[in-house]
Write a protein that binds this DNA or RNA. Structure first.
Lengths: 142, 142
DNA sequence: ATAGGATCTGTAGTAGCTACAGGTTCAAGG
DNA sequence: CCTTGAACCTGTAGCTACTACAGATCCTAT
């Protein structure tokens, strides 16, 4: 597959088609164009957007990266690296490593929350405390 | 401790003090007031906000709940329940149970991301593939 | 020719803050 | 009493990543 070829050729998909093919909704596609994540496509005579194969690839990339929780800025950087194919692997890896650390930090935070919540809900359930254990916890009385 | 007494009495803390005592920053305190999460406090002659003990409690509650990832709407509901002390425990518990499910779903999502990221980064590291495995993954070629 | 679906632009809304600008007040020291 | 500088005031705009309109135009099939 040719990642280099993100410029366009061939098929002229209207936005609705691109949306269906990528699972990315129409407003989001226009949004990505507005913020410069997706290049402006050709237009029909009447002004409708017509996308080519490169757009399909690029949008697919963006969607998969979003699915992995990369921010739009990170994705912008990755797309840059994918285009200037010189020393991209180490740098792309670096972006991913940083992001992975982020993800792990979030997991740790959420697990801490989960532990407190689960324990508190359990205490609520047993009905042995006069006042609501959840509220007591939140009021900092415990 | 009296959760009922969220109305105010006694100490007249200026906003900076309240901020320091709760660890909640000043702009956020004013924001909470604007959206009705924190009642409007008394004012000095010159118009400076003066907070009492009830505000301290309530803001502490909000902060702890935020720390557990409750949304502001959930917190609003919990505060309501804490005030109308009739049948709050079951309902408060319900809010927490729903939230706990949310947190668990987020953890599951993040773990899935983590797995893919970690694996991909590893493949980048071993240098055995000609192209960048991360980029290949994002382009959907693998 | 026309109907109705697809698309267009532009603006505003979501959560939960944060960051100003440009002004006023408060409290302590002289 | 006066001054200074910190603290405070209001109001607006910004952030992320979208989503949801309104009101207009285009495209395609009959």
């Amino acid at each position: 597959m040719d990642r280099k070829n993100l410029q366009d050729t061939a098929p002229r998909l209207p936005i609705g088609m691109l949306s269906r093919r990528t699972g990315c909704n129409i407003e989001t596609i226009r949004y990505y164009e507005k913020i410069g994540l997706l290049p402006a496509p050709a237009r029909s005579e009447g002004g409708h957007r017509l996308y080519g194969h490169g757009h399909l690839m690029r949008l697919g990339f963006v969607r998969r990266a979003r699915g992995l929780g990369f921010t739009l800025d990170e994705i912008r950087a990755l797309l840059q690296l994918a285009e200037d194919r010189d020393r991209p692997c180490a740098e792309a890896r670096e972006v991913a490593v940083v992001h992975l650390a982020d993800v792990r930090a979030k997991i740790a935070d959420l697990r801490a929350m989960e532990a407190v919540l689960a324990e508190t809900v359990l205490r609520c359930a047993d009905g042995k405390t006069p006042d609501c254990p959840l509220l007591e916890t939140l009021f900092g009385t415990i």
